[in-house]
Simulated scan of single mutants.
Amino acid sequence: MTKTQVLVIGLDPNLVDFSTMPDMNAEKVRAGLEADQAKLATLGYEAELCLTDLGDTAPDVVAQKLAEKPFNCVVIGAGIRTIPAYFLLFEQLVNVVHRAAPGARICFNTKPSDTAEAVQRWA
């Protein structure tokens, strides 16, 4: 049986300014993403992380990743979606996913540690 292929798109935590988020830092974000990637594996999904820059190459990086193989589900992370400075990047990435993976379900997490729940809602 083939596992459901999941792509998790997020900002590289090392590039994010956490000064307005006192309870978060790059290490916590990365740990949350990696823990949820492992959780997805135990649930029978094959998840890959696609961490991007703040917008210069992000659409191209995501398009290239989506061209590597078919993904059943694509998660666009809360860091891209909820921080107002990245609104245009979010819009670009939604359109990249729509073009490159039209059959994939798109879902959204609310924090690095609830990605598995977002995937389970749609995959």
Rank of each mutant, 00 (worst) to 15 (best):
K3H: 12
V29D: 01
A100F: 03
D53E: 10
N109L: 05
A123D: 12
N95Q: 15
A26T: 04
V29I: 10
A116P: 07
K65R: 15
T82S: 08
G10A: 14
K3I: 06
L43M: 10
A116I: 01
E34M: 06
Y86G: 04
S113G: 07
W122P: 07
G32L: 02
L33W: 02
N25W: 00
L51A: 06
G79C: 05
F18M: 05
F87Q: 13
V96M: 07
E48V: 02
P70W: 00
N109C: 07
N95Y: 08
G77Q: 03
A41Q: 08
A104R: 09
C107V: 13
T115K: 04
N14P: 07
A118C: 11
N14I: 06
D56N: 12
T52Q: 06
T57F: 11
D114K: 13
I80N: 00
K69C: 10
L40T: 11
A85K: 08
V94E: 13
T110D: 14
E46A: 13
E91W: 01
H98V: 07
G77L: 02
A116V: 03
T4D: 15
G10V: 08
A100I: 01
C107T: 15
T42P: 05
A38S: 08
K111T: 07
A78L: 02
V75E: 09
C73S: 10
N25M: 04
L33N: 05
I76K: 00
T42W: 03
V119F: 08
G44A: 06
F71N: 06
L88M: 11
P70Y: 00
T82P: 00
L7G: 03
V62N: 07
F108E: 10
T20L: 13
A78E: 04
T110E: 15
E34T: 03
C73Y: 02
K111P: 08
N72T: 07
L66C: 07
S19H: 11
N14Y: 09
D36R: 01
A35R: 01
L49Y: 00
P84A: 04
N72C: 07
C50L: 05
P102F: 03
M1H: 14
K39Y: 08
N95H: 11
L11T: 13
S19R: 13
K28N: 09
A101K: 02
K111G: 11
C107D: 12
G55T: 00
K65S: 13
A118K: 01
T42R: 10
V16T: 14
C50Y: 02
I106L: 15
A38C: 03
V74Q: 08
D114G: 12
W122D: 12
S19M: 11
R105N: 15
M21N: 10
L43K: 11
T82A: 05
A104K: 08
S113Y: 01
C50P: 08
K3P: 11
I80V: 11
C107P: 09
T4A: 15
G103Q: 14
P13H: 05
R81L: 00
R81F: 00
L49H: 02
W122R: 14
V29F: 00
P84M: 02
K65W: 10
G55H: 06
D36Q: 10
F87R: 12
V96I: 07
G55K: 05
F71V: 01
Y45M: 02
M1E: 12
Q5E: 15
T57C: 08
C107N: 07
Y45Q: 05
N25A: 05
Y86M: 06
D53W: 04
D56Q: 14
Q37R: 12
E34L: 06
M21D: 12
V97H: 05
